[in-house]
C-alpha cells in the first residue's frame, strides 16, 4: 500500500488532506460524519485577539459552482478559544492548526504568543488574506512590505510551524510568497478566497451586506491551481494548495502542480464526508499507478 505520509517542515501529516479554515468549524461539527483523527490536519476558524461578531446578515450568496461569503471573522477571540474550545478539541489525534488574523501587527503577535503556549496546537496559519474585514486581513497580504512585516513579527514570538495563507487578490502572488518565505514562514497555503460580488436584480441591491465577499468552490479551482504552480516554482518551503477541491482528482492536480498537502474547504458543506473520500481516492490513485509514495506526486507535472 502506498505511503500517504507527508512532511511540512517539522510538521508530520498522516496524509496530505487538511481542512480549510472557516469551512470546518473546530472539527466537532463534523464528528458525527467522519473520524476527525483520520485527517492529515484541520485548520480551525479564524481567530483574533478580541472576540468579533462578524458582519451583518446576509453573509452568503450562492454563485455558479461556488459561493461568496462575508462572514468577517466571527469568533470568540483567542481567550475564548483557549478557555472554551481548546479543552474540547485538544484530544483530537490530528494536527490542529489555528488560523490567526488581526487588524494590527501587534494583534497578530499577541494572538500568536498565546497560541504558542498550547501543547496540542503544533502550528498556526497566519491569515493575511481575509477579504471580509475592513482593517487588517487582506490588507497585510496584498502588499509585500506589510506581508513581510507581519510574518517577521510573528516569527519572532511563534516557535512552532508557521504557515502563511496567501491572498489571490494580487498582481504577482510569487512576490508575496517569496517575501514571507524570507521572513521565516515554514510553509505557505493558498489560495484564500477571490474578491467578488453578486447583485439581486429585483431589489437592485448587493446580495451581501458588505457588497463584496470572498468567492470559493469549484469555480475558483483553475485560478488556484495556476497560483499553486507558480508559487511552488518560486519558493523552497512546502506549499499547501486549496481552492475548489471537491474530489481526489482535484487534490491530485494540486499535488502535481507542486503542493505537498492540500486543504478542502467549501466542498465540506455539500458532502461532509468528502475529506475521507479524497484520502481514499488518493490511495487508490497510487495503487492504480503503481506508485508507493504520495510525495512522488508533488511537482510531478509533466510539461514540454
Amino acid at each position: 500500500m502506498g505511503n500517504l505520509k507527508v512532511q511540512l517542515g517539522e510538521l508530520s501529516l498522516s496524509n496530505p488532506v487538511m481542512t480549510a479554515s472557516g469551512t470546518f468549524g473546530y472539527g466537532e461539527e463534523y464528528a458525527d460524519f467522519i473520524d476527525i483523527n483520520a485527517l492529515g490536519g484541520i485548520v480551525v476558524k479564524g481567530t483574533t485577539l478580541h472576540a468579533r461578531e462578524g458582519n451583518a446578515y446576509p453573509r452568503m450568496a450562492e454563485t455558479p459552482k461556488g459561493m461568496l461569503n462575508a462572514v468577517g471573522l466571527q469568533n470568540k477571540g483567542v481567550d475564548g478559544f483557549i478557555n472554551d474550545i481548546y479543552p474540547r478539541i485538544k484530544n483530537f489525534k490530528t494536527n490542529i492548526l489555528v488560523n490567526v488574523s488581526g487588524s494590527t501587527v501587534e494583534e497578530y503577535v499577541e494572538t500568536a504568543e498565546k497560541i504558542n503556549e498550547l501543547d496540542a496546537i503544533p502550528g498556526i496559519e497566519l491569515n493575511i488574506s481575509c477579504p471580509n474585514v475592513k482593517e487588517g486581513g487582506m490588507a497585510f497580504g496584498t502588499s509585500c512590505p506589510s506581508a513581510i512585516a507581519v510574518t517577521n513579527a510573528v516569527r519572532k514570538v511563534y516557535k512552532k510551524h508557521l504557515m502563511v495563507k496567501l491572498s489571490p487578490n494580487v498582481t504577482d502572488i510569487t512576490e508575496i510568497a517569496k517575501g514571507v518565505e524570507g521572513s521565516g514562514a515554514d510553509s505557505v497555503s493558498l489560495i484564500n478566497t477571490l474578491l467578488g460580488m453578486a447583485i439581486d436584480v429585483n431589489s437592485r441591491k448587493p446580495v451581501l451586506s458588505t457588497i463584496t465577499g470572498g468567492l470559493s468552490g469549484p469555480c475558483v479551482k483553475p485560478v488556484a491551481l495556476r497560483m499553486v504552480w507558480q508559487v511552488s516554482q518560486a519558493v523552497n518551503v512546502p506549499v499547501v494548495g486549496m481552492g475548489g477541491i471537491a474530489s481526489a482528482e482535484d487534490a491530485i492536480e494540486f499535488l502535481l502542480a507542486g503542493a505537498s498537502a492540500i486543504q478542502i474547504g467549501t466542498a465540506n458543506f455539500i458532502d461532509p464526508t468528502i475529506t475521507i473520500k479524497v484520502i481514499n481516492g488518493i490511495r487508490e490513485y497510487l495503487e492504480r499507478n503503481q506508485m508507493d509514495d504520495v510525495k512522488q506526486l508533488t511537482g510531478a507535472l509533466i510539461t514540454g
Partner: peptide, 9 residues
C-alpha cells in the same frame, strides 16, 4: 451554506 454550524453564514 452548511446547515450544521461550520460556516457561520
Amino acid at each position: 451554506a452548511c446547515g450544521f454550524g461550520a460556516c457561520l453564514c
